[in-house]
């Protein structure tokens, strides 16, 4: 009897596990397929890319990658994009965590008002403000400079990051903070040694989101930057998409090249999302 029950329990569990995996696998397939399609298209030629829909390419044109790299001037643009992405991400994480720490753990007049002001920036995105931004940057002499491209993007990332980090910082137990203070930590010490390490998952999420946003950004780049030498990676992809003619294999090769770094960033960061806070650390 007991054995029977155990068996049923086991089959039930197995069935549940099977169903779970079925869901996961089917969603996973829809996520991977476009990538595979993109990759196989990047190895075809312009006349086979839409007529031959097979995934395994008979006569792969690896040369497409070479051509995409040189035609798209990816060398220069890659350097620029890495520079912009690291600068913006570092800026967002640093400035937002400082502000979020103040909102979560410090007291000062006008706290709520200021916090809501930041939140509102996240909520009222104004498409019409593009030209106003241009006028402002040209008054500040920042048109066609790297700084002029980086600062507005840091600003754009702040609100969400502040909100996310504030929720994490609020969860930090008071005793942890007190014991740090007894050890002689000032406010900045508490922020740096206690709050930041505990907010690792949130920081990882912020890094992933902002890195992707900056990496894929091009409208602002087109507006603010004028010289080729300052343009980010997405500018390279434009070359393959003419007003009338799109060179699909080269475009797909180019996109594949640009997707790789962002996947790597995610691979590096997702570990921290998971192992960020262990139960012990929170209990203190």
């Amino acid at each position: 009897m007991i054995k029977f029950k155990m068996n049923r329990y086991v089959t039930h569990k197995r069935l549940k596990g099977f169903l779970m995996h079925l869901v996961l696998v089917s969603v996973a397939v829809t996520c991977i397929f476009p990538l595979v399609w993109m990759f196989s298209s990047s190895l075809k030629t312009q006349d086979t890319v839409f007529s031959d829909m097979s995934i395994f390419v008979n006569n792969p044109k690896w040369g497409n990658y070479c051509e995409a790299w040189t035609k798209g001037r990816f060398g220069t643009y890659f350097f620029n994009s890495i520079l912009y992405t690291t600068s913006v991400v570092a800026g967002v994480v640093f400035f937002a965590s400082l502000a979020a720490f103040a909102f979560a753990r410090l007291n000062f007049p006008g706290k709520n008002l200021l916090f809501y002001m930041f939140l509102i920036t996240m909520m009222i995105p104004i498409p019409g403000s593009f030209i106003a931004l241009y006028v402002l940057l040209s008054k500040l002499n920042l048109i066609n400079t790297r700084l002029g491209y980086i600062l507005p993007q840091i600003n754009a990332g702040l609100a969400l990051a502040i909100y996310l980090l504030k929720t994490f910082f609020e969860e930090i137990p008071k005793d942890l903070e007190d014991s740090a203070k007894i050890d002689g930590c000032g406010k900045f010490g508490v922020y740096w040694h206690i709050a930041m390490p505990l907010a690792k998952p949130a920081i990882a999420v912020i890094v992933v989101f902002n890195a992707m946003a900056v990496w894929n950004e091009y409208l602002l780049a087109m507006l603010i930057l004028s010289s080729k030498s300052l343009m980010p990676l997405q500018r390279g992809l434009m070359v393959f998409q003419g007003a009338h003619i799109t060179r699909y294999p080269l475009l797909m090769a180019g996109i594949t090249i640009t997707v790789i770094p962002i996947v790597i960033v995610y691979l590096l960061m997702q570990r921290h999302i998971i192992t960020g806070i262990t139960a012990g650390a929170v209990k203190g």
Binding site: A99, A102, L106, T121, L140, P152, I154
Partner: peptide, 17 residues
């Protein structure tokens, strides 16, 4: 702690809006 975020906010949000 708020200063850097506040400066950016004031320049790049308030004026365009």
């Amino acid at each position: 702690f708020l200063l850097p975020a506040l400066i950016l906010f004031a320049t790049f949000y308030i004026y365009p809006v």
